[in-house]
Design a protein around this nucleic acid. Structure first.
Lengths: 347, 347
DNA sequence: GCGATCGCCACAATCGATTGCGGGCTAGTA
DNA sequence: TACTAGCCCGCAATCGATTGTGGCGATCGC
């Protein structure tokens, strides 16, 4: 790439390449006289030397690259995580390579092996499925890897997530305070931890409020508007009555509201809805969505920091989970209930 | 990383490492007997050999990595571009490394030099400023680089963008059809080509419709809601009258609407507004925004394809510009004008 | 039947930085 | 003066794959 190599610097400074290497390496600088260090540094600056990272990587088998695996970068959840991670990594001297698996386990696997061949120093994985052999491989091969946003069944890999249990609990409690007793839950996919954890939290919160969650959980196949709409249609079709919906995430919530509107049911007059994540535009919609805000940027930063520390020697204990606090955002899609009257007619 | 090297494969197959290398390299395979090729391939498969990309990169000085530089990944414009590029690159055998410059020229420069030291094969740059020394360096060093979304003053680097002139022309024409004659333009920053090009297009379109653009252009310091709101406040404060706004992008448009609302001016009843880009959530707002949709995904794909072809030998002609067609999306923020009456009172 | 040609493969240099080892030189001690 | 202890630095191997060069044996042509 650029023509100036370490030997050029060494020649300019009148020393051997090995010596120049030590002079430029903070960890070995004390094996070289102060004078020589100065001469080498001056020569390096004069020639505009930048070390060849590839050659260094070959010798040291460290690349200072870490890979971030996301399922779909157009999902507004991820840019904030990426940005947080990138900041921390950049200031720690690491480069981020991004791979978008397009929600496809096959490309996930092939991308991860490609990254491994490339000698990345570690992985941040945001695509974890509940059962995920790729993660098992990574764990077995002892490749530094941290999970963010989603985790898998019972893996030794550290996980940075949010306190979903508390988030859902706040949703249920808020609705209860507004008088709702018939609350529906749109459950995220069972092959994601976010889906499972929130559903389990919902059941627990309902019990805690002495409400029945029996018929109240509708399973959704994916975290999309379409799935949310379908779930509401199904619930309505089988005559389930409810005055509120706790959605597994924001997109499900939006889909739910659209489906309700198509049935002439208004939000929040007839039915209240809560989302989850507080994706950027939720507050701009009309009505603005009541939802749970998760600290995406922090999650990214923390994941990166955990990984960098691991690479530098302090391996996290197996099974470590860091759950960040969430914030309940009461906005316009929740209101005091007026009872089931209208719903009965429509259902 | 993985312990099996080319020499291991060679030993297993009973040949020299050099021969094994040729046998595995499609371009050199014909200098080796078919038998040997088979033996080597079998050995490679048996041992689970994956070539060490770092060592290869050192020798060949090709990394099969390309860097994508974006100013701010949380800007909803970029994920779609990234995704398009990533798809093309992955299927061409390239890896994408992402760097977010946080809109800071300094980090842009340092990141680009770091990437160069890393030996990336090329750049896709979405951060171009109108005067951008980093791009000049890249061009001078003959590093394959393609610009996307924004370009700089007069550079030899190929540029993939959209037909902004036509897009703005459609906005003005649409408003003219609705009877608007006093049209304000919120101009994007003058250090971006998108800002400059659209403003110039606005002026031309106004002339083409025999309207005056004299006082009608308000400069904005950045592509943010805040800047849009400030611009409208300023226009109102100095008594400029208008019944429609052509904003330089979607965020400016949103900010403009908020500022108008704060003055008791309703959209679209009193003032019509058009945005630009049709970022994901524009259609969900109330009212849904009239705006111009740009093919972000295609831009990313095309940029990647252009770059890959360049690396493979077919360098684009200097100054190549590819402008993709845009689509006008008439929605709820534009309506027939009812005259300046209300505005005069408020102004 | 002998030299020229060709196919196939081994050898070794190379990419650029890092690092274990050992030697030279100075200083300090007896 | 002689000998040891350190401090600095040069030497050369090393990481793993690629590739120019040359040699061996077999085939072809005359």
């Amino acid at each position: 790439m650029q023509k100036v190599r370490l030997v050029d610097v060494a020649r300019e400074a009148g020393v051997h390449a090995g010596t120049a290497s030590r002079a430029l390496n903070p960890a070995a600088r004390d094996t070289v006289s102060r004078q020589t260090v100065r001469r080498v540094e001056r020569a390096a600056r004069k020639l505009g030397y930048t070390p060849n990272t590839v050659a260094r990587g070959l010798r040291t088998s460290r690349s200072f690259v870490i890979a971030l695996v996301v399922p779909d970068i157009t999902n507004p959840l991820f840019p904030y995580i990426i940005r947080g991670a990138e900041q921390v990594l950049a200031e720690s001297g690491y480069t981020l390579v991004l791979t978008d698996t397009n929600n496809n386990p096959k490309t996930e696997r092939s991308q991860v092996t490609a990254m491994r061949a490339r000698g990345v120093d570690g992985f941040i994985v945001a695509t974890a499925r509940w059962l995920d052999p790729v993660l098992d491989d990574l764990a077995e091969a002892a490749v530094p890897t941290v999970l963010v946003n989603r985790h898998n069944e019972h893996s030794p890999l550290p996980y940075i997530g949010t306190d979903d249990r508390h988030g859902i609990e706040m949703c249920v409690h808020h609705l209860r305070e507004l008088g709702h007793r018939a609350i529906l839950h749109l459950a995220g996919p069972a092959d994601t931890s976010t889906g499972r954890d929130r559903t389990s939290a919902f059941r627990q919160a309902m019990r805690g409020n002495e409400l029945s969650a029996g018929r109240a959980v509708v399973q959704c196949g994916s975290f999309t508007e379409q799935a949310g709409a379908d779930a509401v249609d199904a619930a309505l079709a089988r005559g389930t009555s409810f005055t509120a919906i706790v959605a597994g995430n924001d997109l499900l919530a939006i889909g739910a509201m659209e489906a309700l509107a198509a049935h002439g049911i208004q939000c929040p007059r007839d039915v209240s809805i809560t989302g989850y994540n507080d994706v950027d535009f939720m507050r701009r919609l009309t009505p603005a969505f009541t939802t749970v805000r998760v600290p995406l940027h922090n999650m990214g930063m923390l994941a990166a920091r955990t990984l960098v520390n691991w690479i530098r020697g302090t391996e996290p204990e197996t099974g470590t989970q860091i759950l960040l606090p969430v914030e309940f955002m009461a906005r316009g899609t929740t209101a005091p209930t007026r009872g089931l009257g209208r719903l009965r007619v429509e259902g």
